[in-house]
């Protein structure tokens, strides 16, 4: 048992993540061709606009459609469908917590691949200042609120159905992910109504920004992702958890340096045990980068299965964990 634990703690996380992410990407982008269908309440960007290849649909798409139902329906029988969809989403989410972002989300994986490309080209990365970080971190909550309120407004007759599923219209995943099955049909501006023009133009602009942003900044889009905000609101009962023992932390800052999301609390906060913040993607790089035994650990249903160790740190350092 201790050998198994040592093997897990000494794992080459970078390689493990690469293969895990690749497998998840193939599953959710091409799984539909093998008749795999995991439903339409998935807690990550398995894009519904991948028509045939998708193995499931990101929950935000059906959620927006459901909330746009006329209010008399929404607050009667259609409300059951909303609650059912949300319950299934929550069940999926509870298993992996924000690990869906760090290990499964195809759009997140794509950003990691762009980061790898940048590193191979020898171009340095960009980062936010602490002040920029503090200001920008609210954007995902604003997007989440708009994502919920605009469809509700449509259902109430305040806006036209033309702006239905507004977040999907501006999400770069709609444009980028279908490319992997050879579908370029989303790269258009829809001139059928003023609302469509604005949203599709915004979507194309954000896609251009996404490509540059994800190239120069690790996990650029995750910082603004409303799914990430929704995750955090539900993360309390999740089974997969990131925990910190502040008494073992020397505040060396290795975890902060390794963090794609530049979360300062991971290094600075030595009082909280539940150290996962709303921006965290549970990529577990911080655990892998920590040299102090047991300072950072990952629990599943309160059972620790991966924790920081000196031996693991040295092994990973020798392989170049921060390449």
């Amino acid at each position: 048992m201790s050998k198994l634990r040592d093997a897990v703690n000494n794992v080459d996380l970078k390689r493990f993540r690469f293969w895990f992410q690749l497998a998840a990407f193939v599953l959710f982008v091409y799984g539909g061709y093998l008749a795999i269908n995991l439903g339409n309440s998935l807690p990550m960007f398995s894009c519904g606009y991948i028509r045939d290849g998708r193995a499931g649909v990101c929950y935000l798409l059906p959620l927006q459609h459901q909330l746009a139902r006329p209010w008399p329906q929404l607050f009667s029988y259609a409300g059951v469908a909303v609650l059912t969809g949300f319950a299934i989403f929550a069940l999926w989410f509870i298993v992996l917590n924000k690990g869906w972002c760090g290990f499964v989300c195809p759009l997140g994986t794509l950003q990691d691949w762009l980061t790898s490309l940048r590193q191979k080209l020898g171009i340095r990365q960009s980062g936010y200042t602490h002040e920029q970080f503090r200001r920008l971190t609210w954007i995902k909550y604003v997007l989440l609120a708009l994502l919920l309120l605009i469809p509700l407004g449509i259902g109430g007759g305040l806006w036209s159905h033309e702006v239905g599923a507004p977040f999907c219209q501006i999400c770069p995943g709609r444009m980028v992910l279908p490319l992997f099955v050879g579908d370029f049909s989303q790269w258009t501006i829809d001139f059928s109504s003023p609302g469509k023009i604005v949203l599709t133009a915004l979507g194309m602009g954000i896609t251009g920004l996404f490509i540059v942003g994800a190239f120069v900044k690790k996990r650029f889009f995750c910082f603004f992702c409303p799914m990430s905000a929704l995750h955090y609101l539900l993360s309390k009962p999740a089974l997969l958890r990131l925990r910190k023992d502040g008494s073992k932390c020397t505040r060396c800052g290795d975890c902060y340096t390794a963090c794609d999301m530049e979360i300062r609390e991971i290094a600075d906060d030595v009082t909280r045990k539940e150290i996962m913040t709303d921006d965290c993607t549970l990529c577990l790089k911080c655990v892998a980068a920590c040299p102090e035994k047991g300072a950072l650990k990952v629990d599943f249903a309160n059972i620790t299965f991966f924790e920081s160790t000196e031996e693991g740190f040295i092994k990973r350092m020798n392989k170049g964990i921060r390449k």
């Binding site: 790269w187 258009t188 501006i189 829809d190 059928s192 194309m204 896609t207 251009g208 920004l209």
Partner: peptide, 15 residues
């Protein structure tokens, strides 16, 4: 009602 040229144009300008 949809235009690839405009779509690609806006994406390239933003990029």
């Amino acid at each position: 009602y949809e235009s690839y040229a405009w779509g690609l144009g806006i994406a390239v300008v933003a990029l």
